[in-house]
């Protein structure tokens, strides 16, 4: 339980900007794997269901990802 609390507390200190970048990277890779699976572009809802997050989180995350150096960050961290 101490472990979980510490995790939660750490999580609380994380800047939104960083967490959104991580979500954006997950959205990108899930989008590709879903495309391979269903043979067309997945809709937002399909992505959200697969990632177990909301459509809104995806929308916000995608916009945090406009600058390429963010992507670099995510891939190389």
């Amino acid at each position: 339980i101490g472990e979980i609390k510490r995790f939660l507390r750490d999580d609380g200190m994380i800047k939104v900007s960083r967490s959104l970048k991580q979500t954006a990277a997950r959205v990108k890779s899930t989008k590709e794997s879903l495309f391979k699976k269903i043979g067309r572009e997945p809709t937002l809802q399909e992505l959200a269901d697969t990632l177990d997050i909301t459509k809104e989180e995806i929308v916000m995350a995608l916009d945090s990802n406009m600058q390429p150096d963010y992507l670099y960050d995510v891939i190389h961290q």
């Binding site: 959205v27 989008k31 572009e41 997945p42 809709t43 937002l44 809802q45 992505l47 459509k55 809104e56 995806i58 929308v59 916000m60 995608l62 916009d63």
Partner: peptide
């Protein structure tokens, strides 16, 4: 983001968005 999140009610693809 505001427009995208409103549009997301129509469940578009990421490209459309």
């Amino acid at each position: 983001v505001v427009v995208a999140s409103f549009a997301s009610q129509l469940d578009p693809t990421i490209e459309e968005l």
